[in-house]
Design a protein around this nucleic acid. Structure first.
Lengths: 334, 334
DNA sequence: TGCTAGACTGAAAGTGCTTTCAGTCGTTCT
DNA sequence: AGAACGACTGAAAGCACTTTCAGTCTAGCA
């Protein structure tokens, strides 16, 4: 005589509540009174209850899980976006599944398998260059997707205007009376999968300088490898020029801070001898009193998550192509 | 437009039979007239019908997924551990599910439901104080768990020796000839769920000072709220003392860097006028040339993930209680 | 031609769980 | 004290199939 597997009905009976409460205890435990929950849990333990995955899958139209595809997160900016996503998702009590990507193949493999697994309510792709056919695959399979920092007509997007950001920095520095202004960015790594906004920022920056009648000499444009040593060495070389710039726009805060450090070592006063403007406004920027172009990183993540959550609630909502505002945050370095 | 997934009802409609027949075609084809069967099969092909529940259930069963319970990650140290986890898991081709915890109830609710839903191959709990009964529940239900920065006899643990870390800092500073040495830590927030290693670091620090015949006067021990303003204000107060310390051990790098900043503003030379030792060795520490006690944060995450992965491959492996080494990394600040 | 066994089929009743929608209480605000 | 509120809870309506059961139809037989 096999003792039949207990169902939530059995648990409900022995713990004296209704099946809905059992279900809630399991799925959104914070919505049920601690005392009730404990009673239910003990009944569950006593009976050795295990919900049948098959029944569960059937009743659940949505999995309440959203995925994030991100490059392996080393840069602070990824972390802050992720933080925004995590915050919003936690409020919506949604699971967050993270896939870190470290090659194009990896990325494509994920994208290919996601529709088939269909165990994701939505997908956020951060700073990854996705190919047309992959975008199509996602769209055709009806996977709600939000691209952060990249663009596709058929998918939700959250971008910033890097061109404008570069221009903003240029105008600000020009406004402060600078005429010898340099640019400091990293070298785009060979990986094809990552998005590199540096070039756009440089273009916007250069254009604004030229519109103001200033030139951006070749030697004022530095592109260094994204490493401690690489950055510092390049910064050093730039500042050691015969007529070094009096102001520098760095394509990211990390780079701006590298320069600050080297400048300090060279006994340059900031901003008197050297003005510095960064880009991103990572946490650290406030900490270092860095004047920078803010793109609200947390907000971009939050927004992405919210788009997905609200799409889930109301699938009819239309595609969103959002351009996040950039603002110059004036602090002590320029 | 919306590429909705076809159900058995759609197949029934387009092939002009009832759903029961579809079901039979799929489950016991020999009981269905060949002609009907073919009609049904062609409809199935045409619609690309895949029984939903089955796929879902399968997807839920072989999870290949490990979960991380973490406080909402604001501090860089969480991020670095998470990074370690993500790296190892990505190599093992495992999904990473993140649950951010923001209250004890939240935490307990998660812990309670995880074993039952059994949709996780393993669980990593970062810097969270878990209660005896919760530990038991995890253990009893056979959920492979790794605790980072906390301790339980029946679960895998990865810890560091905070006492020793404090001692290490003290001995180093004493060795550099300092006698007026201060401590700078944050105030433990009221949340019961988070682990606070500050106190242990202070105790170990104080003990080592006393063993060397030095005292740690009350006014040299500062505990500030973990905020920009709070930290800086407290640092300022400490340095403005009539006889300020000549060296400070900060309970974390972030706090050490706060002090550096305030010290610079006060025109103190580092390390000549004020030596500073931090704790953690976050990325930023190298960047700031901060002398600090390294606990390898990435490594702790990596190790946790690897324990879980290898347990999955070979469930017989024994419990691991790992004590990660601490090393003093000498840089420019002390 | 009238009957009936046997092969098929569809309506409807599960299946075990989730979720919506009210309704019940205990609180807080006024 | 009364009203308005909000946290909990249970009843009941799904969900996407499977199965049972009672037919319908056809072929085979007298």
């Amino acid at each position: 005589m096999a003792p039949k597997k207990p169902t939530i009905y059995d648990v409900a009976k022995t713990s004296g509540v209704s099946i809905s409460t059992i279900s809630r205890v399991l799925n959104s435990p914070d919505k049920v009174n601690t005392k009730t929950r404990e009673r239910v849990m003990s009944a569950i333990d006593r009976l050795g209850f295990v919900p049948r995955a098959e029944a569960r899958a059937r009743a659940m139209r949505n999995t309440n899980r959203i995925g994030v595809l991100t490059p392996f997160f080393t840069a602070p900016s990824f972390v802050q976006r992720l933080r925004g996503v995590a915050g919003a998702l936690s409020r919506a009590n949604c699971e967050l599944v993270i896939y870190t990507v470290d090659s194009v193949e990896h990325l494509q493999a994920y994208i290919a398998s996601i529709p088939i697994m269909q165990n994701l309510d939505g997908l956020i792709i951060i700073s990854l260059a996705i190919e047309e056919k992959d975008a199509h695959r996602l769209h055709d399979n009806g996977i709600e997707t939000v691209l952060i920092e990249s663009w596709h007509a058929q998918l939700n997007c959250i971008c910033i205007d890097d061109l404008r950001g570069g221009g903003l920095a240029a105008k600000y520095l020009i406004g402060r009376g600078h005429t010898r202004i340099g640019f400091f960015g990293d070298i785009e790594p060979p990986e094809r999968y990552a998005i590199r906004p540096v070039k756009s920022r440089l273009i916007g920056f250069k254009r604004a300088l030229e519109e103001a009648g200033l030139s951006l000499p070749r030697r004022y444009v530095v592109r260094a490898p994204y490493t401690q040593a690489g950055l510092q060495q390049a910064a050093h070389a730039l500042l050691a020029l015969p007529h070094p710039p009096t102001a520098i726009f760095a394509a990211s805060d990390i780079q701006a801070i590298s320069i600050m450090k080297v400048a300090r070592q060279a006994n340059l006063r900031i901003p008197e001898d050297l003005a510095i403007v960064g880009f991103d406004d990572i946490d650290l920027a406030e900490f270092m009193d860095l004047t920078t172009i803010r793109q609200d990183l947390d907000e971009s993540g939050r927004l992405a998550a919210e788009i997905l959550v609200s799409k889930k609630a109301d699938p009819g909502r239309s595609l969103q192509h959002i351009n996040l505002p950039l603002t110059l945050i004036q602090r002590q370095t320029a």
